[in-house]
Design a protein around this nucleic acid. Structure first.
Lengths: 187, 187
DNA sequence: TTCACTTTTTGACATCTGTCAAAAATCCTC
DNA sequence: GAGGATTTTTGACAGATGTCAAAAAGTGAA
């Protein structure tokens, strides 16, 4: 719980009242490797904070699993599309390691947002950060070559390579596993 | 101004006080075709609402212009990265048509957010919508073929093809102009 | 250690896309 | 409507990436 509050304080200041309310609203969840937090077709009604561990988001296309993002320590994770719209999720959230999460339901969060302007602000700022992070990934996906994307991964998030099977990294980079293997061989 | 308030009401309800405050905070800006709202290297300190007209965001790479998004009627536009972080913009915002915009400075917006919880909420909800819209574009960019992306553009946002030169559309789709031309020829 | 299973690498080949150059079509101004 | 500039299309070719198949390497359990 401390790691969650510490992380939240980086977005914006919180009053003791808001911190208490937040503390009381998140529940700890422990899930082991390869289990699912969410499966395709279900509505995601929770937002999770990842205290420890790793997970991936993937969907299925032509019988292949397309891993499009990873979550690690101090990330907020959910199926954003499903959580925001209330529609069934198209993606699966699967644990890559045994994981400690903190969970809050959408209803609970909505109540907090109604009560505390400062929590609304925090969430707004969190979305800003997540937005520009996604924007950068989008530009990389669309306008950089496979090799450039791999180099950037090496430079910026090398821990992904250490914790995730190569096939999933390839998918994350938007290339085939064979191509990723060849890029690595050239290094 | 009516079109702006109407648009804002779609995100969340607003009290008359908040609507008045918002009305007083946006200034009308009229700019003609090919002019710039923002150029590379400058800090973007304004958020704009596009009432009428069209513009594009592009940056320069190897002497080529990479158009990565378009804005049309009822879009909020800015260089999000620069506006949020306060860092110099890497992109240029250029008008594609004569345009009527409403402008609000970051300072003015910050003051409004401090005063009105409901405006903070509106912005948070706006970010949610923009986030999942971007997420969809990201998935398309990374995991769909050029032809699929073009078909989707035809199905979902055909007005882009009618209002934007093909070279810029190609860049928006992440392909060369020649490839786009050939995809069109096959249809 | 050995065996089975999973993950990663390598090879051969086909396809897609980009680049450069030129032709064709379109647009704009006078 | 003519002429020049811009935009779009077409052709030829090279390079990058995907797919399928098989080999090699790595992992874990008995």
């Amino acid at each position: 719980m401390d790691s969650l509050l510490n992380h939240l304080r980086q977005y914006s200041r919180l009053s003791p009242e808001a911190e208490t309310a937040l503390s009381n609203s998140f529940n700890q969840v422990t899930i082991s490797r390869n289990e699912y937090l969410l499966t395709e077709g279900r509505i995601c009604r929770h937002l999770y904070f990842l205290e420890k561990g790793a997970l991936r988001g993937y969907y299925t296309l032509d019988d292949k699993e397309i891993t499009h993002w990873f979550g690690f320590e101090n990330d907020f994770v959910t199926s954003f599309h499903s959580f925001i719209t209330g529609e069934p999720s198209v993606e699966n959230l699967q644990l890559l390691e045994g994981t400690v999460l903190w969970s809050i339901s959408k209803d609970t969060l909505t109540a907090l947002l109604g009560k505390f302007h400062e929590i609304e602000r925090l969430l707004r700022i969190a979305y800003e950060k997540y937005y520009i992070r996604l924007e950068e990934r989008f530009v990389n996906a669309q306008f950089k070559t496979a090799t450039e994307r791999y180099d950037q991964l090496l430079a910026q998030t090398p821990h992904i390579l250490e914790r995730v099977p190569l096939g999933q990294v390839a998918s994350y980079l938007g290339i085939s596993q064979e191509t990723l293997s060849r890029i690595r061989a050239r290094h």
